[in-house]
Amino acid sequence: MEENKHCTDGPSCRLKCACGATPFLIGAIVALAFGWWIFPDLIFSKQSQPFYFSHSVHADTAGASCVDCHSFRDDGSFSGLPTLENCASCHSDILTAEPGPDSAKAEVAAYEAEKTFIEEYVNTGREVPWLTHQYQPDNVFFSHAAHFQKCYTCHLTMKDRDGRALNLGAPDNPQKLCMTCHPSLEELDKGIPVASNVLTDYSRTTMKMWECEKCHAYPGHFYDDGKGRTFANNACYTCHK
């Protein structure tokens, strides 16, 4: 065969031609690099919020609690993002001190963000087109109220059989339960871009069924609480109405 003839000329010939495992290895390395480093960036589009927003500033400096902005409506449904009216109840004018030449970068960013908010939204009455990092598609019914009440209340105090705290929402960090699905406050404060799948339009952090089943199919959640209730129902109709 022709290929065999090439390789009968000795070791140097083997280096010159593409014999051996080298091309295979190169191909595998290129694919791995593409698959693990390039592909994730390609499949998700990246968008930025209309202006910078810091959860830490609102929580730590202004003393706002989560429900001040992310509240439950009268009918128990979750309001999600605050409305312009909600924000403007505090930000009717610029509250941040105007930065000087020596001001830190963060202070300048906060001032610029609030200025943008007042000028472009409060003064015009236009709702802020916030982008959502995490939302569930229409075919899934997700109740924040049910998760907040049922998961949060138990996970604050309960321990597993080995005595370890099931501290999804530990008393010192009540947002931890929220962070099970949503990006952490630290990540949000860094201004991470909102990533959407270019094929499906789902957000990067949209939970798939297997992720829901981490809790819903967790055997410990099927135990009867003595009142005929289970802690997490895994029947289809629980999420798909």
Binding site: C17, P23, G27, A28, V30, A31, L32, G35, F39
Partner: peptide
């Protein structure tokens, strides 16, 4: 032959990625 090996390697490698 080398190209085919490269493709085979890429195919194998891609299976080890999320693509």
């Amino acid at each position: 032959r080398g190209f085919m090996k490269f493709i085979a390697g890429a195919g194998t490698g891609i299976l080890a990625t999320p693509v």
